[in-house]
Nucleic acid binder design. Sequence first.
DNA 1: GGGTAAGCGAGACGGTACGTCCTGTCTTTGC
DNA 2: GCAAAGACAGGACGTACCGTCTCGCTTACCC
Lengths: 193, 193, 193, 193
Amino acid sequence: MTTSHPDRAAARTKTIMQATLALAQEVGYAKLSIEAVAARAGVGKHTIYRRWPSKGLLFLDSLLSLNEPVFDYPDTGDIVADLRRQICTVVDLLANPPWGPLYQALVGEAQHDPAVAAGLNERFIRPQTDKTIVRLRAAQEQGQVSSDMDLDLVMATLSGPLYFRLLITQEPLTHNYVDRVLEALFAGMSPRL
Amino acid sequence: MTTSHPDRAAARTKTIMQATLALAQEVGYAKLSIEAVAARAGVGKHTIYRRWPSKGLLFLDSLLSLNEPVFDYPDTGDIVADLRRQICTVVDLLANPPWGPLYQALVGEAQHDPAVAAGLNERFIRPQTDKTIVRLRAAQEQGQVSSDMDLDLVMATLSGPLYFRLLITQEPLTHNYVDRVLEALFAGMSPRL
Amino acid sequence: MTTSHPDRAAARTKTIMQATLALAQEVGYAKLSIEAVAARAGVGKHTIYRRWPSKGLLFLDSLLSLNEPVFDYPDTGDIVADLRRQICTVVDLLANPPWGPLYQALVGEAQHDPAVAAGLNERFIRPQTDKTIVRLRAAQEQGQVSSDMDLDLVMATLSGPLYFRLLITQEPLTHNYVDRVLEALFAGMSPRL
Amino acid sequence: MTTSHPDRAAARTKTIMQATLALAQEVGYAKLSIEAVAARAGVGKHTIYRRWPSKGLLFLDSLLSLNEPVFDYPDTGDIVADLRRQICTVVDLLANPPWGPLYQALVGEAQHDPAVAAGLNERFIRPQTDKTIVRLRAAQEQGQVSSDMDLDLVMATLSGPLYFRLLITQEPLTHNYVDRVLEALFAGMSPRL
DNA sequence: GGGTAAGCGAGACGGTACGTCCTGTCTTTGC
DNA sequence: GCAAAGACAGGACGTACCGTCTCGCTTACCC
């Protein structure tokens, strides 16, 4: 066991993560310092280092601790509508203020720190992918999605254009954009017969 | 005129960018410091600050200075083959050692520094997109690509899945993956009629 | 009663003091930490703080616990010989390895911590002085020492040059040096008549 | 050359030493921290570490920088009177507030740090000793001091009792005490003939 | 062809944060 | 029922870079 009094320890952990998010909102991830988090949380630096080995992982944990139960898929029988609804929900949360910039920073940090990349994948991307695949498989069985599609690849083609916009061109992610991506992906690029 | 002796200045600029790349290869972008670059290049820190306002932009310039003339599109008349060839070339360069990790770091930095994001877009992404669009427009006119497709969106659906793999799941980008993406995008997700 | 099981407590106290001395020998007093003593002694820090209020006093206790019964004065009837023998014994113990450096450190600590200074005086210097004075008084009565001498002052003039060497010039304290000091003090600085 | 602008650098050095002394007066040497000195002096910590390798040597330099030209010997022809005058001057300065406690702390630190001990000897004790010996040699030639006395030893017997009082018994050092020491040393401990 | 200005290396500087160590207090758990 | 184990807030350590700032040297340009 790590801690003598789990409740106390858990409370402190939460305090630190809240301070982290608050400060990140105020100054941005780049200027976030463990020193400042400790001060804000009223905590010794060691208490942070005891829990997290790096600023990146602290930040990852803090963001994931929000953990709004957003991510359960609807199943109305219409795969395009369900995908649209799900994607819009996630996009609203992760690609717009207040969390958008922080999620962006998190992905940025994952490019510098393999541990953050691994955590991000295991704890956010992979579960999200799994749920999407479950829904897509049902759609395949219902004949709404081409049966020879690798569903991991489908996840990538769905998510990719959104991340491209979020991370590369950094234009705003609108519901309209989601619609157009879905439409294009279902239609395919080949000319209509 | 910027410099009393343009040749000297240009040479120094190049030296600095080479030192930047060399050091970045050795220690990674995250641990790169302007102090170390200056020392490695045998140059005063001021000489760097006079040329670049931040580590990120120095790094952007350094990477782009490689500027291998890779990016001109072939036009064999077969859009899928041409896209494949082009994308594979870029992927081989930017998503594999030795430059892959550094390009990844550059995109990561763009998430923290708007100036880097802007530079990356204007100087690398946008030109690349423009060339792609030219080639796609030709394909549209030849009836190889659906005529009602927004070509900017096509660029995003082509690039997105690759960036998703590079930045998010961080799995290796293979030619096979490029093939599968192209195939899926041209076929579309809807079931075969 | 202080402790439920006095023997146990006394044993623990001894263990701690031994660990203190062992560590002090290894790393020196300056780098000694209560944390390390606790770890070495296999004891909680609290157990140390319960017994000693400061590192200095712990160290003082530890050193005095050696308490070799060195310090009883001989009385052969020859005051100079007796002083010489006594001083040499003390010097051999306190001004040479292994205890010399630690005694030096203890006196050093007394300069920073009044409690250590007080303890050192009461528990080591004063008793030593008292015994010396007893012997000197006998010598005075026998006519071997000038009768109008303040014996506390004599103690200071005997000890002072030795401490000066130990603490200030930090040269080695030899029996020969002891001889010369005694000779000089008994002869006085005035020229021979 | 160490510094581009010697005057600036010297001024900063002085500022730091003054801040050191001021803080040492306020909180004592034991609680003095380089961090606090830097803050008080309005200086980066590095600027201190660039000049001094340890708190002890900074403190040594700071104290010696007072360097009041106190220490030149009078020569009235009467060695006892001259010694008395000289010793009283030094005692007034070094064994009483405001510098007494700090000089005491310096000697204390010398017990923990050999570099401080060496510096103290070379830069303060040795010069002082040399001047004393010059005066004593003159006295020897005039027949006021026994001619077979080792003058280094005389210095130790003069200084020792004073340091014993300052460092060990930590009683106040008065002019009267100086008188009694001088008298005892010149008279010798042997009984009057 | 000599004076002046600019670029430059070198590195000092005030700061900020790092990650570590230790202090002295407090809490829990296990023997 | 005490003590080991160690969490904790706090403070200082010594280091690394940041971005700014002189310094003196070396060109090269213009008169």
